[in-house]
């Protein structure tokens, strides 16, 4: 079987990107290796841990469980694309202020999932936040400060 090549092109963090890669290239591989944006992490590679969560058209997805070519024509946003210049996104700032991370490996995915969660449900309860982050695993914090961070960010985002 020959290696088929795919033309991958989509909107990426506000700009447009394109490259020819093998058909079986995962979206997370394309982002990290072809585009060189390594903020999106590969944790489990089995769509369990959520370290690779990015946004497609504003919705959170696990980029280890999509082929790059499936994102053609879509609007892709990663952790590198959410700050306003040097000013952190309210969710990033809240994780910083509330000690919402320790080792930081899960943080990019956690932040991306949390942003969609708060956008969908600006008044999310603690329980809804905990359930909404089911797809993201953190082995350091015990989640408590992550939930606090999301609650704090939700307030800031609501005021905007």
């Amino acid at each position: 079987m020959g290696e088929n090549m795919a033309n991958v092109s989509f909107t990426f963090n506000g700009g447009s990107v394109g490259a020819e890669v093998p058909d079986n290239t995962l979206l997370v591989e394309f982002i990290r290796e072809t585009l060189g944006k390594t903020g999106t992490h590969i944790g489990c590679d089995t769509s369990q841990c959520g370290a690779c969560v990015i946004h497609i058209n504003g919705e959170s997805v696990k980029s280890c469980t999509m082929l790059a070519v499936m994102a053609n024509g879509q609007d892709v946003t990663t952790i590198e694309g959410i700050a306003d210049g040097d000013k952190m996104h309210p969710m990033q700032a809240a994780f910083h202020e509330n000690h919402g991370l320790q080792c930081g490996f899960c943080t990019p995915g956690m932040v991306m999932s949390a942003i969609e969660l708060v956008t969908r449900n600006p008044a999310a309860s603690e329980q809804e936040i905990r359930e909404g982050l089911e797809g993201n695993i953190c082995r350091c914090t015990g989640y408590h400060n992550i939930v606090k961070s999301v609650q704090a960010a939700a307030q800031v985002m609501a005021e905007k």
């Binding site: 997805v61 999509m66 999932s113 089911e134 797809g135």
Partner: peptide, 9 residues
């Protein structure tokens, strides 16, 4: 079903 990210796809 699954988690939010799975339900989104």
């Amino acid at each position: 079903i699954g988690d939010r990210q799975v339900r989104n796809r």
